[in-house]
């Protein structure tokens, strides 16, 4: 909500990011059976905003997140955080920069060490990064517990003594401990019950307001994304097919895949009768190993033309910031 500012600060810039996995080396033509998990993704995340990436399983949204965090190998492309080129850093340099970007995982049950006390889990990043004196760390951890809606005395408990929602609060506290410039949230609420989801989403929104956090929010749930994100990118088979600010994307989706995705979401505003009239996607996405020649969505697209099967459409800006990769949009 900066308003008057001409150009907001960019917290994260991703340029033509590619992550390819595996494949047997061939003598002349590169690699065979390569999985093109992320295939040329570019976007910018403004500071203090929430950037959402949505897509179905296999779309490459999580791999994109992991590559940004340098937890998946980057095949090519650039990741720039603030003015540091993260993708070029190695070993010690990278380790010392890690305090600047943190992650909140999907499954709060498997992402906390069951043998460590809650306090120690939240404190660990401070110790690894050697931030503050021992006393300062104590105070910081206690303050973080309060900030995420837990009680400081709960530091002595073990993860199994917390509920799923509380564990996700712990995950948030751990991510916040180093005051990162970017927090990557990989499906942070999809393992939680609906009532608990709302609590965590509200907490995330509150923390963003208080601390000016920047989130990269990965989710398959369009309802959640619509609620929390400022800018949304839709991914399909390793590429962004549409990107726009929240209002523009949800009121005026342009890519047939985005439209179909929106139509497929079950909603309490629908009912049995009007459900049948909506468009449906048929089949499954093609394999990320043998990618089709033209548009990757053409085989499932309800409006595909001959051209779509021959050429891949580039991601082009249609109107103020709304980008679409479709010949027909």
């Amino acid at each position: 909500m900066s308003g008057a500012q001409a150009k907001p600060d960019i917290a994260l810039r991703v340029e033509d990011l590619k992550v390819h996995f595996g494949g047997k080396k061939r003598f002349f033509s590169g690699y065979a059976n390569t999985v093109h998990a992320v295939d040329g993704v570019s976007f910018e995340v403004p500071a203090g905003k929430t950037f959402g990436i949505v897509g179905e399983s296999g779309s490459g949204k999580s791999t994109t997140a992991l590559a940004i965090l340098r937890l998946a190998p980057i095949t090519s492309g650039k990741v720039v955080l603030g003015d540091t080129v993260i993708s070029d850093l190695e070993k010690e340099e990278l380790r010392s920069e890690r305090s600047r970007f943190q992650i909140v995982f999907q499954d709060p049950y498997s992402s906390l060490d069951p043998r460590k006390r809650a306090g120690a889990i939240v404190r660990e990043p401070l110790e690894l990064m050697k931030i503050g004196t021992l006393k300062e760390r104590d105070e910081k951890v206690a303050a973080l517990f309060v900030q995420v809606g837990l009680r400081p005395e709960q530091q002595a408990l073990f993860p199994h003594q917390f509920s799923g929602g509380q564990r996700q609060r712990l995950g948030l506290a751990r991510a916040l401990s180093t005051r990162p410039e970017l927090i990557v949230c990989d499906e942070p609420v999809s393992a939680l019950d609906v009532a608990i989801q709302a609590q965590i989403l509200n907490l995330m929104a509150d923390l963003q307001k208080q601390l000016g956090l920047t989130y990269l929010f990965i989710s398959h749930d369009l309802g959640v994304v619509q609620h929390i994100c400022d800018i949304v990118a839709v991914m399909y088979l390793g590429q962004i097919v549409e990107q726009a600010d929240r209002v523009s994307l949800f009121t005026n989706p342009r890519h047939p895949y985005t439209k179909a995705l929106l139509e497929a979401v079950p909603s309490v505003h629908q009912n049995k009768r009007n459900r049948r009239e909506r468009i449906r996607l048929v089949g499954d996405p093609p394999s990320p190993i043998n990618l089709p020649k033209g548009c990757r969505f053409a085989s499932r697209c309800p409006v595909a033309e001959a051209r779509c099967h021959q050429e891949a459409p580039p991601l082009l800006e249609k109107e103020n910031g709304h980008q679409v990769a479709c010949f027909l949009a």
Binding site: G223, F250, T251
Partner: peptide, 23 residues
Amino acid sequence: CVPHLSANPAAISERLMEIPGVV
């Protein structure tokens, strides 16, 4: 408490209704 897709996303209130506590 579920963030449902809305045809008019500009009008979404910032906070979701919560059911406090747990089962």
